[in-house]
Amino acid sequence: MILIDEPLMYAFVAFWIIWVAVRRKEPGRWLIKFCEGPLMTFARFIDFYVMRMAGFFVWVSKNPMVALRIKEKEVRLKVEKPVITPKKAEEYERGLEEVRIRYTKELPRLSLGASILLILLFFLVYLAMYLLTVH
C-alpha cells in the first residue's frame, strides 16, 4: 500500500528547508501570527471566564448569605439607577459598600432564637408531609 500523504510530507519538509535557506525566515509567518494573536487571545478569554466563574463560586461559598445580599443590591442598583434621583443612587451605593465591608468580616452566626425557629420549621415540614401523604 502506498501512503498518500508521505510524498506530500517530504515535499513540505523540503519546501520548509529551501524556504529558510533562501529567505532566512520561517515560512507560514501568517499562521504563527494567527496562533500567537487571535487564537491565544481567544483561549485566554475562555480561560479567564472559566477561572472567574470558579472564583465566583469560591467567593460565594465563603459567605453565602452576605454574598447573595451583595449580588441582590448590585442588581437592584443597576436596574433602578436610570429611574431614581442621583442622591438616592448614592445612598444605594453606600449601602452596597457597607455590605461589602461586612463581607470580609467573620461569618454571622445563627442566634439561639433562629436555631429554635429552624427546629420548629423543620418539625412543621415533617408534619405537613405526614398530613399530606397519609391520607
Binding site: R109, S115, L118, I119, F122, F123, Y126
Partner: peptide
C-alpha cells in the same frame, strides 16, 4: 416524628446543626 426530630437535633442533622460548630 417526634423521635426523628428530637434525635436529629442531637445528631446535628442539617438544618438542626446550629449548635454544633
Amino acid at each position: 416524628v417526634f423521635f426523628v426530630v428530637g434525635l436529629s437535633i442531637k445528631m446535628a442533622l442539617f438544618p438542626l446543626h446550629t449548635w454544633l460548630p
